[in-house]
């Protein structure tokens, strides 16, 4: 595997002819390379939680380039650890009231594996959107906590810190609102695709979490697809989508959705 182009013991003064590019070209190309390498290092630092304010600020500067070049990745494959997987189950009701049920990803239906993986990643995307959002109750609770903190700061005579916290609160509320819209939009769109596919009038979706069996369970002879690895307390009602409707009904994410690292990070 020896590579004759590797840096290593070399003559101290390389002859100018050693390089096919002149020094001016090398200078400009070097600048471009340094800028590109900077982007390659900063992006993974900013793409995945936890992240520093510095990496976020630097990332903001380089984001247009990284987006255009499709470099916005964290590369945290199966990190921090392999987690549970998530499956979307659905029940479609057609015009005559008959129901068709299914789920994705579906190992029996989706072939080749690459296609199965696309649907698997879609279900994981839905999971992340659900996990990122709070219930109304949770949101109100968080908002109240921050408002109390703001009042406390004002009472302590620290209006500047209170103003900063108020700004943060408003930003959090705006961000959360966007996350809710995003989650609902994706669920509506997925629901509409399922309705079209099965010629239905309404579809009810549920997100199911499959926890990882323990070694002891497998030793006892339990199969990996055993239903006990789909605990009902981790099911999340994703709501109902009706044909032609822009609304999704009754989404109520639970608190205990389980996070884990997949290969999409």
């Amino acid at each position: 595997m020896a590579d004759q182009n590797e840096p290593g013991p070399q003559p101290a003064e390389p002859a100018a002819a050693e390089f096919s590019w002149n020094s001016r070209t090398r200078f400009w190309v070097s600048l471009l390379l340094l800028a590109h390498l900077f982007c390659l290092v900063i992006t993974p630092l900013a793409a995945v939680e936890p992240r520093s304010q510095l990496s976020l600020d630097l990332h903001r500067l380089i984001q247009p380039y990284c987006q255009a070049m499709y470099l916005e990745h964290g590369y945290r494959f199966f990190a921090p650890e392999p987690g549970p997987s998530h499956i979307v189950r659905y029940v479609v009701t057609d015009h005559s009231g008959e129901t068709i049920s299914g789920h994705f990803p579906d190992r029996d239906r989706l072939w080749p594996r690459q296609l199965y993986h696309r649907w698997f990643m879609l279900s994981e995307s839905i999971f992340r959107h659900v996990a990122d959002t709070l219930t109304d109750e949770q949101l109100q609770e968080r908002q109240k906590e921050m408002e109390d903190e703001i009042s406390e700061l004002l009472e302590q005579g620290n209006p500047r810190a209170a103003e900063e916290l108020e700004f943060q609160l408003q930003r959090n509320l705006r961000d959360h609102d966007r996350l809710v819209q995003m989650r609902d939009k994706l669920l509506q769109d997925v629901g509409q695709v399922l309705l079209e596919r099965h010629n239905g009038v309404s579809v009810e979706m549920t997100m199911v979490t499959r926890v990882i069996p323990t070694p002891a369970d497998v030793m006892r002879g339990l199969e990996l697809d055993d239903d006990r690895y789909l605990p009902e307390d981790l099911w999340v009602d994703l709501g109902v989508v009706n044909t032609g409707s822009d609304e999704i009904e009754s989404i109520e994410p639970k608190e205990n959705v389980q996070q884990g690292g997949g290969e999409e990070n």
């Binding site: 921090p80 650890e81 997987s85 990996l224 697809d225």
Partner: peptide, 18 residues
């Protein structure tokens, strides 16, 4: 992650039905 330290992470990957 703790499972990469305690040496069990690969189990999590091998035993994932999906």
């Amino acid at each position: 992650g703790t499972t990469w330290w305690d040496g069990t992470a690969i189990w999590g990957a091998l035993a994932s039905y999906e």
